[in-house]
Design a protein around this nucleic acid. Structure first.
Length: 436
DNA sequence: GATTGTTTACGCGCAA
DNA sequence: TTGCGCGTAAACAATC
């Protein structure tokens, strides 16, 4: 497919999805992880600032987190000046600091420009692929690249961004537009080409089971539903890193329903013997070329019945929120419940109990070995602070010059003022970027 | 008509 | 090489 937007063409996307944090990858990806990596492997002057010991199995993120995020994540809010600029300490130190306080740290990621300056995968001004010339320029004239990194795509996947947005909200649920707003507030990059990334956001919300749609209550009329995180999605980022999940979260029930939809007869025939079972619709094209075989037309899948089943599945998560530990309902039982009944259950718990539920259950799954989500500097769990913690941390951050614009995130995702932050670092919003 | 939500398709890069 | 996670585009339906 023709890529029409050079600033985020495959290269950007790659660095993104690449999330690509392999420490050994000698490429200069745009993402900050890659940046850090790149700097460590190839741009030695900066790498020194990281200090030793940041490489390792998880070095991809560690390289990022190590110097900056780790210590600040731990609550030691380092002043920007205490971090070597070249070490990306400023932006990421800020990030780390704020990270523990909610997502505001991401605003700093918006300012990851300093890091990106070292290792961007492409000339952001031209959109041209990286080259030896670029690399040379990067070393010779680092400041040349500092200015344009508000362009750079944040190193977080859309799933991460959505998760951040939701988790940042006390009620743990947001409307689509609020998610948009959160992201734009946090990352100036996303103030551009909104149609494109917002489409991706919607796609992510719908496609990923980790996001659960919650219908509006009658007392809260408006457009669109609320979105929250699936209660069991807390360990999506098993490596503790927000960049790329190791494994996609799947709601078994929804998955089962999807499979049912794929087989009109509700039989096992959908997966013919000897044929690889397809779990991910995303990759149908590998085994399932369009037009081939008996793929069920969408129109046939959108019957009232299947729609309702889908809704039930979605509501299931919400229902469980209400039911809590007594929610030992089998899937079969749920299907016997009337839609209204489930909706009522959701409504009863909606919205306040949802956050309570999340606080009770969201972190219940800790991976074994390696980083635990709760300990990793970019842990998804660390990004799910208690409100008080968030407020305190943000308050702390506000005391630092240059960070005072980072006012605590309000529920409405007040603008973070990262533009000011950028400017304090000598960056300027790219032309065409609108300030909120 | 705009926004929201769902689905399909396909390409890319990384890791196993 | 393959499977997977991800980004993007696009078509379409539902809703406000």
């Amino acid at each position: 497919m023709q890529k029409l937007y050079p600033e985020t063409t495959t290269s950007a996307g790659v660095s993104m999805s690449g999330g690509n944090i392999s420490p050994m990858t000698p490429t200069y990806s745009m993402n900050s992880m890659g940046m850090a990596v790149g700097s460590m492997t190839s741009v030695s002057p900066q790498s020194a600032s990281f200090g030793p010991g940041v490489l390792g199995p998880a070095a991809g993120m560690t390289s990022m987190g190590a110097a900056a995020a780790m210590n600040s994540m731990g609550g030691n809010c380092m002043t920007p000046s205490s971090m070597g600029y070249g070490s990306m300490g400023s932006p990421l130190g800020n990030m780390g600091s704020c990270m523990g306080s909610g997502m505001s740290s991401m605003a700093a990621m918006g300012g990851y420009s300093a890091v990106g300056a070292m290792t961007s995968g492409r000339d952001l001004d031209t959109g041209s692929p990286n080259s030896s010339v670029l690399q040379r320029s990067r070393v010779e004239k680092p400041t040349t690249y500092r200015r344009s990194y508000t362009h750079a795509k944040p190193p977080y996947s859309y799933i991460s961004l959505i998760t951040m947005a939701i988790q940042n909200n006390p009620s743990r649920m947001l409307t689509l537009s609020e998610i948009y707003q959160f992201i734009m507030d946090l990352f100036p990059f996303y103030r551009q080409n909104q149609q494109r990334w917002q489409n991706s956001i919607r796609h992510s919300l719908s496609f990923n089971d980790c996001f659960v749609k919650i219908p509006r209550t009658p007392d809260k009329p408006g457009k669109g539903s609320f979105w929250t995180l699936h209660p069991d999605s807390g360990n999506m980022f098993e490596n503790g890193c927000y960049l790329r999940r190791q494994k996609r979260f799947k709601d078994e029930k929804k998955e089962a329903i999807r499979q049912m939809h794929k087989s009109p007869s509700n039989s096992i025939e959908a997966v013919s013997p000897g044929k690889k079972e397809i779990h991910d619709d995303h990759h149908h094209h590998r085994d399932h070329k369009p037009g081939s075989e008996s793929q069920v037309p969408t129109s046939l899948l959108t019957s009232t019945h299947s729609k309702e089943a889908e809704t039930l599945a979605m509501l299931h998560a919400g229902a469980e929120i209400c039911l809590g530990q007594q929610g030992q309902h089998s899937a079969a039982h749920h299907q016997q419940l009337q839609h209204e009944e489930l909706s009522a259950m959701v409504n009863r718990c909606h919205p306040s109990l949802i956050s309570e539920y999340h606080s009770m259950n969201h972190l219940k799954q800790e991976p074994t070995g390696g980083y635990t989500p709760s300990s990793h500097p970019f842990s998804i769990n660390r990004l799910l602070p208690t409100e008080s913690k968030a407020d305190i941390k943000m308050y702390d951050m506000s005391q630092y010059a240059g960070y005072n614009a980072l006012s605590p995130l309000s529920n409405s995702h007040a603008a973070l003022g990262q533009d000011s932050y950028y400017q304090s670092l000598g960056y300027h919003a790219p032309a065409g970027t609108t300030s909120l």
